[in-house]
Design a protein around this nucleic acid. Structure first.
Length: 782
DNA sequence: GTTCCGTGCAA
DNA sequence: TATTGCACGGAAC
C-alpha cells in the first residue's frame, strides 16, 4: 500500500523535476539570448547562461591602477574614441577592457606624435650645423653678459651610471629653444659629441651663468661624463623649488607639475610624459623622428623656464621661502653632486669572506628550522603564521597573528626554538640586503659605491638616501666601507641636536640650563622631574632610584621621555616602551611637563599656530603644511565642548572616552577626529624640531664644502641626519680637524651651545674618539 | 612585470 | 596608540 503511494509520490516528484528542468532550460536559453546592457557590464552585472550572476567589472576586485585604466577605457568607448571590439557585450570582460586600454594608449600616442610634428613651434630649433651652433653660442654669450636665465636639460640613453647623454636642449629668455643632438640613431645629420661638448663646456662652466634645470643633479652627473661640470652654476632647480613651495606635492615630475600649475603661467597643455610618448625604453627616443625629439626636448627646457619664473613670483610673495631656497637648498645641490660623485671605498676582500661566513650560518639555521617547523619558506610570514598559530597553536599575543620580531620574542619565552627564526631573520637580512648585494653595486668606472642623496626626500627638510640607502646601514654592514690607503674616515656628529634645538627654540631656561653648564642633560631632566639629587640620576648611581620607588632608572626613563615629548607619543605607548604601567607613565609625563612649563607652553603654541594657519615654520622659515588641519581642529574642539557639556565637566586629555556616559555614535566620531587631530599635532611639533635641526646640518654642509675646497684630497662622503662622514688624508693635522668641527659647531647660532663628537676610523663603524686616535696613533686600529 | 604588504634597518 | 625615511621577499594580479 505504502509502496503504491510511494511510487505515486515518486512519480509526482519526477514530474516536478522534469518541469523544473524545462524551466531551467528556458531560463538558460533566455540567459543565452540575453544581451547585457553597457551599464550591466560595468556596474551592476547580469545573469549568465549557467544561471550564475556575472559581476559588473567595477564589482570585481580591482587594483588602483587598473581602476584608472578601466575608467579611461569606459570613457573612451562612450566618447566613440574607440569601439568595444566584441560582437556581443557578453564577451566584454575586464581583461578585454585592459587590452583595449593598451590599444587606446597606442592610438593616442600616434595621434599626439602626429600633432607634435605638424604643430612644431617655429621657435623650436634643431641644431645640427656649425653655423647653427655658432648661433647658439652667441645666444649663450648674450645670456651670460645680461645675467639672463638659461634653461638646460639633457636627453640620455637611460638613468644608470653606464648611460650617456645623446643630446642637450637649451632655452633662452628671448623665447628661443634649441635641441642639439649628438647621440641619436638617425639619418638626420648630427654634430659630434666631442664638438658639442667642447663648445658647451666653454659656456656652461663660465662662472656666474644662471642655469635653470629640473632635477639638476641628474643632468650634472650626465654632463660630467662628457667633461662638463655645471654644478657651480645651477642657479635654480625647479624640482627642488617646487618642494619648498609644496612639500606635499604628489609628483615632482616636470610634466605633472606643468599639468597641475600650467594655468598659472599661461602654459596650456595636456603634455604626455616621456614614458607615455616613448615607452619605457629610452632607445625609442634615440631612434624617434628627429622632429619629434626636437619638439619633446625643447619643450622641456621651455617649460622649465616658464615654471621657474612662476615659482620666482611665488617666492617673492613669501620671502622666507625664497631665502630657504637661495640661502640653503640651492647651495646644497652641489654638495649632493659631490657626494654622489665620490662615493665610498669598498673592502671587497672583507665583503667576500663575511658573505661566505654569513651564508654558512644561514644555511645551518635553515636546516635546523626546517627540522623543527617543517619544510616551509622561512621568509614567508604567511607560512610562518600558519605554522605558529594553526599547527603549533601558540597563543596569539599580538591579536593580529603577527610574526614580527617583537611578537616572536614574546612567543620565544614559551617556545625557545623560535629563537632560531629570530637568528635566521637577523643574519639573512644582513646577508641578502647588505653584505651580498652592496659590493656588486660599485660604479664600474670608479669602483666606488655611490648612493643618491635627495635634499627634498622628506617633508621636514631632512635628506633621504637611496640606491643604496646609506642612511640606514646597520652597524655590521658599515664595515664593508673603508678608507683607502693614506686616508682615514672621520665621522663628526652633532650631539643631541634635536633636544638642543628644542631647548633653544622653546626658550625653556630649565632645558637650556644643562647645556649652558655643560652637565648631563638627561640626569638634569630626571633630577627636576623626579625631585632627586642630580648625582642620584647619573647612571653610576643604581641605588637611590630603587629606594625612591621609581619603576626604572630615572635617566633611562628620561631619555625615552624626552623623545616621547618630541614625537608626541601616547601615554600607553610610553608605558609599553618603558615597561611600566599606564598610570606610572601618565604621572611621569605630567611631572615632566610640570617641571618644564615653558617647553610645554611652546609645544602648545606650535599646535595652536598649526590650528590657525594649517602650517608650521622652522627656525629658518621652511614651511610644513598640514592641509585641512584648521577644519580638523575646529571639529575636534567642537566635540570637546559638546562632550564637556554632556558630562557637566571639562573633558580631560586623560579621560578614557569609551568609559564615558555619552552616546556610542558620538564616541566613535570623536575618536576618529581626535586620532587625526593628535596625529597632526604630533607631526607639527616634530616638524619644527626635526626641520630646524636638519637646517643646521644643511647650513653646516654648505660651509663645510667651502672649507674642503681649500684642502687637497678631503672629501665629504655622506650625511646621516646629524652626522657627516669624511674621507681625509692621514696627514691632516689636529688643528685642521678642529677647524672642520668648528665649522659645524658655528654653522648656526642657537641659544644653547652646540657640541660635536669626532670619530676617526679606518673602517666605517669601527671608529674611536678623535682624542684617542691622537694619543695612540694608528696603533689604535690594530 | 607591477603593486601591495609585512618586515626591519637607520637617525 | 611615536617622527622621518628606503629595501627586500613573498604573494597576488
Amino acid at each position: 500500500m505504502f509502496d503504491i503511494f510511494g511510487n505515486f509520490e515518486q512519480d509526482l516528484e519526477k514530474e516536478k523535476k522534469a518541469m523544473e528542468r524545462v524551466k531551467e532550460a528556458e531560463i538558460k536559453k533566455k540567459a543565452k539570448q540575453y544581451e547585457p546592457s553597457w551599464e550591466e557590464v560595468w556596474i551592476t552585472g547580469y545573469p549568465t547562461s549557467t544561471g550564475n550572476h556575472k559581476k559588473g567589472i567595477f564589482q570585481t576586485k580591482i587594483t588602483g591602477k587598473d581602476a584608472e585604466r578601466l575608467k579611461a577605457v569606459k570613457t573612451a568607448i562612450e566618447n566613440e574614441e574607440i569601439g568595444t571590439e566584441v560582437e556581443s557585450l557578453k564577451k566584454f570582460s575586464k581583461s578585454h577592457a585592459l587590452n583595449l586600454y593598451k590599444k587606446l594608449m597606442e592610438i593616442r600616442r600616434a595621434e599626439i606624435i602626429k600633432e607634435y610634428i605638424e604643430n612644431m613651434p617655429d621657435n623650436y630649433h634643431l641644431i645640427n650645423t656649425h653655423e647653427q651652433m655658432e648661433w647658439v653660442e652667441n645666444m649663450l654669450d648674450v645670456a651670460y653678459v645680461n645675467g639672463q636665465y638659461v634653461g638646460l636639460d639633457t636627453e640620455t640613453t637611460g638613468v644608470e651610471w653606464v648611460d650617456r647623454t645623446v643630446g642637450v636642449s637649451i632655452s633662452f629668455m628671448n623665447d628661443t629653444h634649441v635641441y642639439i643632438p649628438y647621440g641619436h640613431v638617425t639619418d638626420v645629420p648630427q654634430l659630434t659629441q666631442g664638438f658639442v661638448s667642447k663648445k658647451l663646456k666653454k659656456h656652461l662652466e663660465r662662472q656666474g651663468i644662471k642655469l635653470i634645470l629640473h632635477n639638476s643633479k641628474f643632468d650634472a652627473h650626465m654632463l660630467l661624463k662628457d667633461g662638463i661640470n655645471i654644478r657651480e652654476n645651477i642657479f635654480a632647480d625647479t624640482m627642488v623649488i617646487q618642494a619648498i613651495l609644496n612639500e606635499n606635492e604628489e609628483s615632482f615630475a616636470l610634466k605633472n607639475i606643468a599639468n597641475k600649475y600650467g594655468r598659472f603661467f599661461n602654459y596650456h597643455d595636456e603634455s604626455l610624459t616621456f614614458e607615455e610618448l616613448f615607452g619605457k625604453n629610452p632607445q625609442n627616443f634615440i631612434e624617434a623622428d628627429m622632429r619629434l625629439a626636437t619638439y619633446y626636448a625643447s619643450k622641456d627646457t621651455h617649460l622649465t623656464l616658464l615654471l621657474f619664473q612662476w615659482q620666482l613670483s611665488m617666492m617673492e610673495k613669501q620671502p622666507n621661502l625664497k631665502s630657504v631656497y637661495f640661502d640653503i637648498e640651492q647651495k646644497i645641490t652641489p654638495v649632493c653632486i659631490d657626494m654622489e660623485d665620490i662615493g665610498f671605498d669598498v673592502d671587497f676582500h672583507f665583503g667576500e669572506e663575511y658573505k661566505n661566513e654569513l651564508q654558512r650560518q644561514v644555511d645551518d639555521l635553515e636546516v635546523k628550522i626546517k627540522k623543527v617547523f617543517g619544510d616551509i619558506n622561512i621568509n614567508s610570514s604567511q607560512q610562518l603564521q600558519a605554522v605558529l598559530y594553526d599547527k603549533m597553536k601558540l597563543e596569539d599575543v599580538s591579536g593580529k597573528r603577527s610574526a614580527d620580531a617583537k611578537t616572536l620574542k614574546k612567543l620565544a619565552k614559551k617556545e625557545p626554538r623560535i629563537k632560531l627564526i629570530l637568528d635566521y631573520r637577523e643574519l639573512k637580512k644582513l646577508l641578502s640586503t647588505y653584505i651580498e648585494p652592496l659590493p656588486q653595486k660599485v660604479r664600474p668606472d670608479t669602483k666606488r659605491l655611490t648612493g643618491v642623496f635627495n635634499q627634498i626626500g622628506t617633508v621636514t627638510g631632512r635628506f633621504s638616501s637611496k640606491d643604496p640607502n646609506l642612511q640606514n646601514l646597520p652597524y655590521k654592514a658599515r664595515h664593508l666601507f673603508k678608507a683607502p690607503e693614506g686616508f682615514l674616515i672621520y665621522g663628526i656628529d652633532y650631539s643631541q641636536i634635536e633636544p638642543r634645538t628644542l631647548a633653544s627654540m622653546s626658550g625653556d631656561s630649565g632645558l637650556r640650563h644643562p647645556y649652558l653648564e655643560g652637565i648631563d642633560l638627561y640626569a638634569t631632566l630626571a633630577s627636576n622631574t623626579f625631585g632627586l639629587e642630580y648625582e642620584a640620576c647619573l647612571e653610576k648611581d643604581d641605588e637611590t632610584w630603587r629606594k625612591s620607588g621609581l619603576p626604572k632608572h630615572p635617566r633611562k626613563m628620561m631619555k625615552v621621555g624626552l623623545l616621547a615629548s618630541m614625537y608626541g607619543i601616547s601615554v600607553p605607548s610610553l608605558g609599553e616602551s618603558l615597561g611600566i604601567s599606564v598610570a606610572e607613565a601618565q604621572k611621569f609625563m605630567d611631572d615632566f611637563y610640570k617641571a618644564y612649563p615653558r617647553m610645554t607652553e611652546w609645544m602648545d603654541e606650535v599646535v595652536k599656530f598649526a590650528e590657525e594657519n594649517s602650517y608650521v615654520l622652522t627656525l629658518h622659515g621652511r614651511k610644513r603644511r598640514f592641509i585641512g588641519f584648521k577644519e580638523t581642529a575646529r571639529q575636534y574642539h567642537a566635540y570637546v565642548r559638546r562632550i564637556s557639556n554632556l558630562l557637566g565637566r571639562k573633558l580631560e586629555d586623560s579621560d578614557n572616552i569609551w568609559r564615558l556616559e555619552i552616546p556610542r555614535d558620538l564616541k566613535r566620531k570623536f575618536w576618529d577626529v581626535k586620532k587625526e587631530y593628535s596625529r597632526v599635532a604630533r607631526q607639527a611639533v616634530n616638524a619644527v624640531i626635526q626641520g630646524s635641526a636638519s637646517e643646521i646640518m644643511k647650513i653646516a654642509m654648505i660651509k663645510v664644502r667651502e672649507y674642503l675646497k681649500t684642502k687637497e684630497g678631503w672629501k665629504l662622503l655622506a650625511t646621516i641626519h646629524d652626522e657627516l662622514l669624511f674621507e681625509i688624508p692621514v696627514t691632516a693635522t689636529e688643528q685642521e680637524i678642529r677647524e672642520l668641527e668648528a665649522i659645524m659647531i658655528d654653522a648656526v647660532k642657537l641659544e644653547v651651545p652646540i657640541k660635536c663628537d669626532v670619530e676617526t676610523a679606518q673602517v666605517w663603524g669601527k671608529g674611536v674618539p678623535f682624542a684617542e686616535y691622537l694619543e695612540k696613533g694608528m696603533e689604535v686600529f690594530a
